[in-house]
Design a protein around this nucleic acid. Structure first.
Lengths: 214, 214
DNA sequence: TCGCTCTAGTTAGAACCTATAACCAGTAGC
DNA sequence: GCTACTGGTTATAGGTTCTAACTAGAGCGA
């Protein structure tokens, strides 16, 4: 064989990195990203402080790795749901379930941005993956209504769709699916519906349904 | 007169508190809330570290004050726009302009929540103020369509509307206005539309328009 | 006007944090 | 078996929040 596979050192390294990230996720779920402490993680792993810097260059590097994993996770979730035959409503609920499983993971992607921080190149590629699935799913239902002003505007700004040949109305629908879902979901996860005891899932259903009914 | 008004000490205190908050806003705009440093603020004000604790009990107390101000500011903006005769589209753009003026201020209210943190009581009261205006604005256009399942669901969960007598369809519309606007706006502000060079304002216009057309 | 009190500031210091430097033991591979 | 690299260590610098103890001075009543 040309490739001997990972050496034992490499396997060990990957294992420790995974354990670090695991503890990081737990800390984030408990108190949010700002409370993430490399020191505390090292202690829990039985190693002392600076040892952790053998595995991640610095705090930002660890957080970036988590962000990357979060993107990968949501993309896989969407892909799996779509391959499983989910329609738009199904996709919406798959994403919602994924988000509620670990709200802080959702906000790591879609929450408050850090001024000056730019997500690494490959995460935008993963975003495109997700968007491609959404466009695909939105294309299932043909567009019947007359093109809106935003549709014609989109016709001139469709590079982001990665050359997808869908008509602008479909791109529009995919965008609106994304923004509407995020709108309800992020407010739900952030607790802004706390006082109002309605079912956010129902609202999502109608917001998504209205997409294809319009 | 029965009230002698604020003493000079009180005025001084208010002045310094305002200056502290001013510098805090600048720091947050530059690098986000996590980078907010009481020490750095104190230095800029020419006082040394712990002096700042005479004005704010701790870091959280300062941030809470900023959150309160942010709520007050958005509520005033919405109120002013509505009193100025703005329709739903006008309200949406007033809020968008307010948010783009200082994105981090927007995210202080609607961004990533800190697990365990609960906004003070009065901010939820301000939220109700905003929601009341939205309901009012949504009631201007009568509801013509048949009630949806979510409408009937809302009929049983309308306490949050503060006893507003609007029909459930109107409450529904106000909610959807809020979630749709937040969906587009927060993704725009967070830079998720960066690669796709379309005009988020147009998308908002159509999302809002679709509310009343449906 | 004297004197008390309360306020706004000071410095010192504890307990964290990130991150670097310098060192050391043990493993992998030639 | 020797060498080089890896993964750990401790020490340390410099940052943070926040408390404690103290001081200078302003305001106010007798």
């Amino acid at each position: 064989m040309t490739d001997a596979g990972p050496t034992s050192r490499e396997r060990y390294r990957a294992q420790v990195r995974a354990e670090i990230k695991q503890h990081a996720w737990e800390q984030i779920a408990e108190a949010g990203v700002p409370a993430l402490s490399l020191n505390a993680i090292a202690k829990k792993l039985g190693m002392s402080g600076p040892a952790l810097y053998r595995y991640f260059a610095n705090r930002d590097d660890l957080v970036t790795a988590l962000i990357r994993d979060a993107y990968r996770s949501v993309a896989d979730t969407v892909r799996a749901a779509y391959d499983g035959g989910a329609d738009l409503a199904g996709l919406a609920h798959a994403i919602r379930d994924w988000a509620r499983e670990d709200p802080q993971r959702y906000f790591l992607i879609y929450g408050t941005p850090v001024p000056g921080y730019h997500a690494p190149e490959d995460t935008t590629a993963i975003s495109h993956e997700v968007m491609a699935v959404l466009i695909e799913a939105c294309g299932a239902r043909p567009a019947e209504a007359a093109p809106t002003p935003f549709d014609t505007h989109l016709e001139d700004h469709r590079e982001w769709a990665g050359g997808h040949p869908a008509p602008a109305a479909v791109l529009h629908r995919a965008l609106a699916f994304w923004t509407r879902l995020h709108g309800v979901l992020s407010l739900e996860l952030a607790g802004h519906f706390a006082g109002m005891r309605f079912d956010a899932g129902l609202l999502i259903d109608e917001e998504v349904a209205a997409l294809t009914a319009g």
